[in-house]
Nucleic acid binder design. Structure first.
Lengths: 197, 197
DNA sequence: ACACTAGCAGACAGGTCTGTCTGTCTTCAA
DNA sequence: TTGAAGACAGACAGACCTGTCTGCTAGTGT
């Protein structure tokens, strides 16, 4: 039980982690705008002052939430692609399988960045975080398309990004995880057409 | 100048129309949650009581806003497809051209139903309106795919819906209207593969 | 002429949100 | 042992939001 003896540094880090976890759950489930600070601190079991000393403002917490989400998504995608597939071409298609894993997870609510961007004011922290995420997504597909030897990697990557976005939206709004199959099938056809065998 | 002589009935209808127009502009531009009643009535030049007598509640106004948006979108799509293209197959591809028209319009902010659904509580008016819209969208593609003689109309329609959703998301989040070209190109390839010539 | 309808303007209540501040308690370091 | 740091609980201010209510004005029908 080293639970009761925590240095201030450890206590601080633990509180921060609990806040981020609570923000992740509540913000993703109900939307950034709909969830107030009080709900977050109650769910995290943390004082309000702790939140403001750790993140400065609600915007700061939102930024941290989106950055953590981005990092977790990228990390998971990279890891799964590496362990499950061998060639760039397989990975290009596999991207949709990995995305589809989340469709059936409890509490799936679509892409967090699309949701957060919906009501976000222009020039705010959400816009910046979303832009970073979009850049990553485009580069993911572009790099794989290039490695797979696509004739027009930029064009193929753009098409696959669109399929990826659409699959998430359809799985969410239609409550239909089969969007993964549809998107993957379409992606495979486009990839086969764009890559000389 | 028949502007000053209006029957109560006419005045009422005019106030309702102004409210709906104001709601459409503000809700779409800044999000349903972010815009308060006061902003709407000020923009419409209407008293608060008028709003509540016409729509009952903010939820009522939101419902009317989304229904009007749905009707306008469906009407525009049907009309443009009819006037611009002749065959079901052309119309399947043309759907993306018609969608793309909005990408370059000033104030484009992506699909209103995706945005509104982002922070919407489950079981609310937004969810119902979004469901109606999604049903229409799926039927639009399914009917066209069937008329075009697709081997598996259901599967093709699903793929095209995903492309349609993704094109809107990409055009919005990436500020890139070329999503229309990418989506249309991909759609054409999928359609050609799915329809026996 | 007179009640009726309906919009307008704005005050108001009740609730919620963010962010600040006060005071208490615990742990670590000097 | 004593002071610094930091978490906790909660009060508080100021703003905003929804929804109701009260006067006021203007046109309509009897």
């Amino acid at each position: 039980m080293s639970k009761k003896v925590l240095s201030p540094r450890e206590r601080s880090a633990a509180a921060r982690a609990r806040l981020l976890a609570a923000a992740n759950e509540l913000f993703y489930a109900e939307g950034v705008q709909s969830v107030g600070i009080d709900r977050v601190i109650e769910h995290a079991g943390v004082a309000k002052a702790t939140l403001y000393s750790a993140f400065g403002s609600k915007d700061g917490l939102v930024r941290a939430y989106l950055q953590a989400r981005h990092a977790a998504t990228a990390e998971r995608m990279t890891r799964e692609l590496e362990t499950r597939y061998d060639t760039p071409k397989e990975r290009l298609v596999g991207t949709f399988e990995v995305q589809g894993l989340s469709f059936t997870e409890p509490g799936f609510r679509g892409c967090a960045f699309i949701s957060a961007s919906a009501d976000a004011p222009p020039g705010g922290v959400v816009e910046q975080a979303a832009q970073d995420y979009r850049t990553w997504l485009h580069e993911l597909f572009f790099d794989l398309a290039q490695q797979a030897g696509a004739k027009d990697a930029k064009s193929l990557a753009h098409q696959l990004v669109i399929l990826y976005d659409g699959a998430g939206v359809s799985a969410w709004l239609d409550r239909d995880p089969s969007a993964e199959t549809a998107a993957r099938t379409a992606a495979a056809a486009l990839i086969d057409a764009a890559i000389p065998n």
